[in-house]
Amino acid sequence: MLQSFSPHADPAVLDDLRARLRATRWPDAPEDAGWSMGADVAYLRELVAYWADGFDWPAQEAALNRLPRFRTTVGGHRIHVVHARARGGPALPLILSHGWPDSFWRYTKVIPLLTDPGAHGGDPADAFDVVVPDMPGYGYSDRPVGPPLDTVAVAGLWAELMSGLGYDRFAAAGGDIGSGVSRYLALDHPARVVAVHRMDAGLPVYTGDRADLAPEERAFLDTAAGWGATEGAYAAMHRTRPQTAAVGLTDSPAGLAAWIVEKLRAWSDCGGDVERAFTRDEILTNITVYWLTGTIGSAMRMYHANGAIPPAQHARRVETPSGFSLFPADLVRAPRAWLDRIANTVRVTEHPRGGHFAPIEQPEAYAEELRAFFRPYRT
């Protein structure tokens, strides 16, 4: 049963947050280090000062609460979900799965574009009933008290959630970890998922003979390995020792901001200036959700769970019609040969702008791509 949900932060909690921000004990940094060694301390000082004395969380919270937000129990887990019905009647149900370091926040800009395309320059016939849940341990969904859930388990929860909402057949889309969740929805519930759209193919897992791969596939594996060596320290920490990092990130809002903002900058199409991709208020809304819900540790633990997924699961090919959006500033872009290897790929779109967080970086382009891709699967 859905229960309406409109959270309101306790003023005392916000006062504590501001006090912590003002009392930040800042590290030194080499002269002109910028972002070359991680988060730019000079930028973070400016961001934290604004978070403490300029950012209006109640206004941002009120904007989020204008979405149709609910909580419900799925598989024993209390889940927060945005359930936005299409304007004008029945439409194709679509479940959108987020990743890290975000939550339902990733899709807040595209929800109205998908539920009411006619009001945004689109065809009203392309409307969706949009379902955007927070994964367990993220955002306003409860943190699992037992072992963390992996993407396979979350896909099972989402299938149950869609049944509870009255949707027998539906479309699925996602990015980052949510790309994997959408993949397993299609793999484990092929009779129910009409088609699946993914923003990325994820970092490749391949245990076969590399000689069987096309040259561009081998180059892709090498590029992904190089990315992991230079950019993957955060993921190694999440997979192996998430609780160690969680102590500092849960206690220090400045530390939390550093951990998240560095990724928002590195993974977005911002040309080195993170505020070209996101407004300062958008950045801090995402981070404040993590702070108020205390979910940075539980979100990181999902990497630990995913690290134990058996190789045989990674080797499964998706036979459900699949589409991919490739954005120029995303982490590692897979070649078409790889996409055909891992899925029944019927559409690949290369976008001129955007990065890993395209639904909030380029919401119009992302929404239009979903409308176009799912159009043949509405009947």
Results as ranks from 00 to 15, higher is better:
His197Asn: 11
His197Trp: 14
Met199Arg: 05
Asp200Leu: 15
Asp200Gly: 15
Ala201Pro: 12
Ala201Val: 13
Ala201Cys: 15
Gly202Lys: 01
Thr207Glu: 15
Gly208Tyr: 13
Gly208Cys: 14
Gly208Val: 11
Asp209Glu: 09
Arg210Gly: 12
Ala211Ile: 09
Ala211Cys: 11
Ala211Gln: 14
Leu213Val: 07
Leu213Ile: 04
Pro215Ala: 12
Glu216His: 10
Glu216Thr: 11
Glu216Lys: 03
Glu216Gln: 09
Glu217Phe: 14
Glu217His: 10
Ala219Gln: 13
Ala219Phe: 12
Leu221Phe: 04
Asp222Asn: 10
Thr223Cys: 14
Thr223Trp: 05
Thr223Met: 14
Ala224Cys: 08
Ala224Val: 05
Ala224Asp: 00
Ala225Trp: 06
Ala225Gly: 15
Gly226Pro: 12
Trp227His: 14
Gly228Gln: 15
Gly228Ile: 14
Ala229Gly: 02
Thr230Ser: 13
Glu231Lys: 05
Gly232Gln: 02
Gly232Ala: 04
Gly232Ile: 04
Tyr234Met: 01
Tyr234Asn: 01
Ala235Arg: 06
Ala236Lys: 12
Ala236Asn: 10
Met237His: 06
Met237Ile: 15
Met237Trp: 10
Met237Asp: 05
Arg239Cys: 04
Arg239Val: 09
Thr240Cys: 05
Arg241Leu: 07
Pro242Ser: 02
Gln243Asp: 14
Gln243Ile: 11
Gln243Ser: 10
Gln243Asn: 12
Thr244Ala: 13
Thr244Pro: 08
Ala246Pro: 07
Val247Tyr: 15
Val247Met: 11
Leu249Gln: 04
Thr250Lys: 02
Ser252Glu: 11
Pro253Trp: 04
Ala254Leu: 09
Gly255Arg: 10
Gly255Ala: 11
Leu256Ser: 00
Ala257Ser: 02
Ala258Thr: 02
Trp259Ile: 03
Ile260Glu: 00
Ile260Val: 03
Ile260Gly: 00
Ile260His: 00
Glu262Met: 03
Glu262Leu: 00
Lys263Cys: 08
Leu264Glu: 08
Leu264Asn: 05
Leu264Thr: 00
Leu264Ile: 01
Leu264Met: 11
Arg265Leu: 07
Ala266His: 07
Ser268Gly: 08
Ser268Asn: 10
Gly272Ser: 09
Gly272Thr: 09
Asp273Tyr: 08
Asp273Met: 05
Arg276Tyr: 13
Ala277His: 12
Thr279Ser: 05
Thr279Met: 07
Thr279Arg: 03
Arg280Cys: 05
Glu282Thr: 05
Ile283Tyr: 01
Asn286Met: 09
Asn286Trp: 04
Ile287His: 01
Ile287Arg: 01
Ile287Asn: 01
Thr288Asn: 04
Thr288Trp: 00
Thr288Cys: 03
Val289Trp: 04
Tyr290Thr: 11
Tyr290Trp: 03
Tyr290Gln: 09
Trp291His: 03
Leu292Val: 08
Thr293Leu: 07
Thr295Asp: 02
